[in-house]
Amino acid sequence: MVTSGAITNRIDRMEAKGLVERVRDSGDRRTVRIRLTEHGHQVTRAAFADHLADYARLLADVDQDVAASTAGVLRQLLENLGDTAAH
């Protein structure tokens, strides 16, 4: 829900930080692909690890049976909404 200019601005900032690079499409000169750099991959992996650690801390005191039951209900909800990857 943002303009193409806002996307360009965000990509410009990420590129300036060395997180992404623009790659011209050889088949279509109008197309520019955005690819994570190695630094971008490192930052993403670290952020994801931190995110998972936060969830682990939040759920540490939740009873495992309750967690399993909740996961089952959420999986069923996703499947009912058409998410076939929830299997």
Score class of each variant (00 low, 15 high):
Asn9Ala: 14
Ala49Tyr: 08
Arg35His: 13
Ala68Gln: 08
Val20Tyr: 05
Ala67Leu: 14
Val20Asn: 05
Leu77Ile: 11
Ala6Asp: 08
Ala16Pro: 03
Thr8Arg: 12
Ala16Glu: 14
Gln64Trp: 00
Asp65Arg: 15
Ile7Leu: 13
Asn80Cys: 00
Ala6Arg: 12
Gln42Met: 05
Asp50Gln: 13
Glu79Tyr: 08
Ala85Val: 03
Arg75Pro: 00
Arg13Phe: 01
Gln42Ala: 08
Leu59Val: 04
Leu81Arg: 14
Glu15Leu: 02
His87Ile: 04
Ile7Tyr: 10
His41Leu: 03
Leu58Phe: 10
Ala86Asn: 06
His39Ser: 11
Val62Phe: 07
Asp61Ile: 00
Asp61Trp: 05
Leu81His: 11
Ala46Gln: 14
Glu79Gly: 10
Arg24Phe: 02
Arg57Met: 05
Ser69Tyr: 11
Thr44Ser: 14
Leu52Gln: 15
Leu59Arg: 09
Arg13Gly: 02
His87Glu: 12
Leu58His: 13
Ser4Ile: 01
Arg33Ala: 05
Asp83Ala: 04
Gln64Lys: 13
Ile7Val: 14
Gln64Ala: 09
Ala46Pro: 02
Thr37His: 07
Arg33Gln: 11
Thr70Asn: 02
Asp12Leu: 02
Thr44Met: 13
Leu58Lys: 15
Ala86Val: 06
Ala86Leu: 06
Asp63Phe: 04
Ala6Met: 09
Asp28Tyr: 13
Glu79Arg: 15
Arg75Ser: 01
Ser69Ile: 01
Ala71Gln: 09
Glu21Trp: 03
Val20Thr: 07
Ile7Gln: 10
Arg24Tyr: 01
His39Asp: 10
Ala86Asp: 04
Arg57Ser: 08
Ala86Ile: 09
Arg75Ile: 03
Leu52Ile: 10
His39Pro: 01
Asp61His: 09
Thr3Asp: 11
Asn9Arg: 15
